[in-house]
Amino acid sequence: MTDQIQRFLFDGTNVRGEIVSLEHAYGEVLERHDYPPAVNHLLGELLAAVALLTDTVKLDGTLSIEVRGQGALALLMAESNPGGELRAIARLAEDAPIPGEHAGFRELVGNGQIMITLDPTDGHRYQGIVALEHDSLAGCLAAYFAQSEQLPTRLWLAADGQRAGGLLLQRLPDDSRNQDADAWERTVLLADTLKDAELLDLAPLEVLRRLYHQETVRVFAPKPLRFGCTCSRERIASALMTLGSQELREVLAEQGGIETQCHFCHTRYHFTVADVEAMLNDGEGSPPILH
């Protein structure tokens, strides 16, 4: 599998990890958009990161990471779910010059913030926010975990426009099973030697073998990942209803219908006058699935 995430842990320690590799899912995101190379690279890192975090928190629902910047890149967003479906999008700032091929994270986003949203199938939505105060996406995400007083977590991310990869290490609370007090510092130090080319070119098991050949690593079965969009006619209808009846009828009077498309996958949706009136007549109930 070229698109997968794999969980592992170090026996006798309180350290666990995840390693992800992406090719086809990443390629499908880029095929649907025309972004500059530097944006493509950062988008790949974000895809790897959202896959890692979704598997780490074991959320039964959707997890999204949204980067809002004040540089050339106004928005970067990726979303994942437990089914292994990934999608992502970017938006350049209006009138911003096209960033150079080798533009870095700070040049692309400038100041801003990262929002991580957990939207469980059952339960309350949670959102955490952290300022963009580091020179890499991985650094900002590590700061998010530190700020939110969660488990110490480090990430290593890489992408080259064709493949994306990521490694995550996390330190669990101490218990009687932890027989190695230096395990966290040692495993992080070794991961810091990881080169982007290794993370992108080597199979996940080979990456772990090279980094931790002197450690006892327990590796679990990989989980496949793929591109998947959660848009639907019903969800688009719900979004249109938020505009209100007056604005919707003004659009209908001007255009004779409503044509829209999903920003993630570019699927087009058309709503006739009759469709919209049926939605409005439904009142505060759930918009019907229209055909």
Results as ranks from 00 to 15, higher is better:
V50G: 04
V50I: 05
L53M: 15
D55C: 04
T56D: 10
L59C: 10
G61I: 08
S64C: 06
E66T: 15
E66R: 14
V67E: 02
Q70I: 02
L75A: 09
M77H: 12
A78K: 14
A78D: 11
E79Y: 07
E79F: 02
E79L: 13
S80T: 10
S80D: 04
S80L: 04
S80E: 04
P82F: 06
G83S: 12
A88F: 11
A88T: 15
A90W: 11
L92W: 05
L92G: 12
E94G: 06
E94Q: 09
E94D: 11
D95E: 14
A96R: 14
I98E: 13
I98K: 15
E101L: 07
A103H: 07
F105I: 02
R106N: 06
E107A: 00
L108C: 02
V109H: 01
V109F: 10
V109K: 04
G110W: 02
N111T: 14
Q113F: 08
I114E: 06
M115P: 01
T117F: 05
L118K: 15
D122Q: 15
D122M: 10
G123V: 08
H124S: 15
R125D: 12
R125K: 15
Y126D: 12
Y126S: 13
Y126P: 11
Q127K: 08
G128D: 06
G128H: 08
I129T: 12
V130M: 01
A131T: 03
L132F: 03
H134K: 04
S136P: 10
L137H: 02
G139D: 05
L141Y: 01
A142I: 00
A142C: 08
A142H: 03
A142S: 14
A143P: 09
A146F: 10
A146V: 08
Q147I: 14
S148F: 09
E149I: 09
Q150Y: 15
Q150I: 03
R154C: 00
L155Y: 13
L155T: 03
L157H: 09
A158H: 08
A158Q: 05
D160R: 13
G161C: 15
Q162H: 11
Q162C: 09
R163G: 06
A164H: 07
A164S: 07
G165N: 03
L167D: 01
L167H: 03
L167T: 02
L168A: 00
L168S: 01
L168N: 00
L169W: 00
L169C: 01
Q170I: 09
Q170L: 02
Q170D: 01
Q170H: 04
R171T: 03
L172Q: 08
L172F: 00
D174N: 15
D175H: 03
D175I: 05
R177W: 03
N178E: 07
Q179A: 02
A183D: 08
A183W: 07
A183L: 04
A183E: 08
E185N: 13
